[in-house]
């Protein structure tokens, strides 16, 4: 049973209780100054952002087929069966390809540290594996953020849109974006207007690189055979020419 988070922007009042709960969970400092930062960073793994009268949350989307986990050369990022995408800092060498690859621009880096780590929301993997809700869900006073089984949350989202068509923009963000995500969002306005990247392809992005990478054994095998063949032919030509020359000179001597 894969867990997911549903964030309903129409119910969010911008109280930032989720931010504080997240900071507490990670042991990050949280004060008015941090609260005012409307972006995720290495010390703030979820951020409530204001867009006029609408609020939205930025956090790791926990893609079903995450680009970050796909590009990580050491497998430090991993999509768990439970849903969250987790990070193992003991493997990470700091190439930052995950940050480049993330279509939602989520992972952050400890730029000022001498031994930096990647920081991102881990979907409260430990809490969820014990059956507890995520820290942000628990803290949310309005129920704008809830967590549960992904299929059930999709059904719930559909129900909300169907029951209040005037209240919602008719789209569940994360249902199909980049192959689907484990964080789903509802909004009153188009999602670009609350800071979510629009126009994302529906295919899982890792498939685009895998389409090329999966041909590597073919290229290597074919290349070895081809190059070996070319070598044999080009050098065989030399040998034949040499043999013919030797033959010719021998014949010349015989004639004499």
């Amino acid at each position: 049973m894969a867990r997911a988070i549903l964030f309903d922007s129409t119910q969010c009042v911008g109280c930032k209780a989720c931010e504080e709960a997240c900071a507490t969970k990670w042991g990050n400092p949280y004060d008015e100054k941090v609260a005012a930062e409307e972006r995720v960073s290495s010390h703030k793994l979820t951020a409530v952002r204001t867009f006029g009268e609408h609020y939205s949350r930025k956090l790791c989307m926990h893609c079903l087929e995450p680009s970050c986990a796909s590009v990580c050369p050491v497998g430090a990022l991993e999509k768990t069966a439970l849903g969250p995408v987790v990070y193992d800092e003991s493997k990470c060498m700091g190439c930052r390809y995950c940050m480049v690859a993330c279509p939602f621009q989520v992972p952050s880096y400890e730029w000022d540290s001498r031994l930096p780590r990647v920081k991102k929301c881990d979907g409260c993997f430990e809490r969820q594996s014990k059956g507890q809700p995520t820290a942000c869900t628990e803290a949310c006073p309005t129920g704008a953020t809830i967590c549960g089984d992904r299929e059930e949350l999709i059904a719930e989202a559909r129900k909300r849109i169907a029951e209040n068509p005037g209240q919602y923009y008719n789209h569940i963000y994360g249902l199909e974006e980049v192959g689907g995500t484990s964080v789903l969002m509802l909004s009153a306005v188009p999602f670009e207007q609350i800071g979510m990247p629009g126009g994302l392809p529906k295919d899982a992005l890792p498939e685009r690189t895998w389409a090329v990478l999966s041909h590597i054994p073919d290229v290597a095998g074919l290349g070895a055979v081809l190059l070996g063949g070319v070598y044999w032919i080009t050098h065989r030509r030399d040998e034949v020419a040499k043999a013919e020359r030797a033959e010719a000179s021998k014949e010349k001597e015989n004639v004499r």
Binding site: S70, K91, M93, G94, L213
Partner: peptide, 24 residues
């Protein structure tokens, strides 16, 4: 460029064949 250059050898033992960077 690597954040932790002393781990530059990690891809040689911690495999992820889906990663282009691993292959590179």
């Amino acid at each position: 460029d690597l954040g932790r250059p002393y781990r530059i050898w990690h891809p040689l033992i911690m495999w992820n064949p889906h990663s282009v960077m691993f292959e590179v």
